[in-house]
Computed example of a mutant assay.
Amino acid sequence: MQTILGSGGIIGNLLAQELRTYTSKIRLVSRQPKVINSDDELFPANLLDLEQTQNALNGSSIAYLTIGFPYKSRVWQEAWPKVMNNVLKVCSEQNIKLVFFDNVYMYDAHHMGHMTESTPILPISRKGKVRAQIADMLMEATAKKKLNALIARSADFYGPSTPLKSIITEMVFKPLSKGKTAKWLGNSHSPHSFTYTPDAGKATALLGNTPDAFNQVWHLPTASNPPSGKEWIHMVAKEMAVSPNYQIIPKWIFNISEIFVPFMKELNEMLYQYEQPYIFDSKKFEELFFFKPTSYLEGIRRIIKQDYTAKVSQKDDLLY
């Protein structure tokens, strides 16, 4: 049995599909799990509760922690350490391998221009400090040989049907598809890596089913030579055959708006990632598994074909 803790999100759903390559026994765990494959086992549970976590993991050989909490520092500070502690405890007691799907918030802000698995950990944001804390909890447990675990780390997301958590979907794809002006944060001339979500799902399943991959950190496959913000916008606009109009959201807007809009405060502390080159290196994974990440242009074309072409066709039909 391979169990996904925190199913229902884009990564959990893609992972469930990819795991069919390795097993027919897949358990999906969340507060309200929904079937991805026809024979998935659904297990409602709250991972903040130790007993429910134990029950959810009973009989599992591999667990994938892909849970997502609301984008609020206070929630992360309260919930993440509890969940990680519960999952580590149960996995160690039941001899379950653990794969933790992570991000790059904990990396030193001065090293964003070339992020590898050995990039220094020195978070400057509240959410980054939480991420550093829980990653340290996991690696400490593996160092003490309490369990076998690995961290699968991703850059920012982009991909078909990506939920609202994808900034590039909300700021670029959606407005351009409606003929509106795209937006960008920080410096539009700085390159910015994005991990294509289908690649992330495939790679996470592969890592979980590769015994030698455990007890280390992995960067999930992400195309090299990322476009700048301006180049992202122009590439998407060209493929949509629309004008690449865009505007930069200045930092002062965040400084003022965060007083009235809590989400702006949450996003403001992460703006440093858009004010400088953000380049994610996944050569370690690519070279070991002979995996070529989806190119940015191909990723953009697939997203438009799946998420936007049908909508445009429907609008055209209304004209006749």
Score class of each variant (00 low, 15 high):
Q77P: 05
P191Q: 11
I303M: 07
T119H: 03
P175I: 06
K97W: 01
S118G: 10
Q273W: 03
L122D: 08
K146C: 00
V172M: 10
S193R: 06
A182Y: 02
K146W: 01
V172D: 04
S166V: 05
H234I: 15
N55A: 14
T3W: 01
W80V: 05
I134K: 00
F285C: 01
F290S: 15
Q17E: 15
L297I: 11
T3P: 03
A143M: 08
P123G: 09
G159K: 07
F260M: 13
D136P: 00
R27Q: 10
E170M: 12
V312R: 15
I253G: 11
M112L: 14
H110T: 14
I10E: 12
L288Q: 14
N245C: 06
Y105L: 02
L98A: 02
L138F: 02
T197Q: 08
Q52Y: 10
F101A: 05
D108E: 13
Y158M: 14
T142D: 02
V90F: 05
A132N: 11
T169C: 09
P163Q: 01
T116R: 07
K25Q: 13
K265D: 11
N58K: 10
T21I: 13
S190F: 06
L271N: 10
D39T: 15
T119K: 01
I303E: 05
A45S: 14
Y105W: 06
N55F: 15
D317I: 12
P33T: 06
P163W: 07
T195H: 04
I96G: 02
P160D: 06
Q133R: 10
D199C: 07
D108Q: 15
I134S: 00
W80H: 09
I151V: 10
P211V: 12
K97V: 00
R126Q: 13
A203M: 07
T309F: 13
L14D: 01
Y278L: 03
E18Y: 08
A200P: 03
M264Y: 04
T23A: 15
L47F: 05
E269Q: 12
T162F: 08
E78H: 12
E78M: 03
K180N: 11
T197M: 13
M139N: 04
Q32M: 15
Q77E: 09
Q314A: 14
L14Q: 04
T66V: 06
Q133F: 04
P293F: 08
S257N: 10
E239I: 12
G128Y: 06
T294D: 09
Y107L: 11
S92P: 05
F290V: 14
K183I: 04
S166E: 12
P244G: 02
H110W: 13
L150K: 00
A45H: 06
Q247M: 12
K311N: 15
L319P: 11
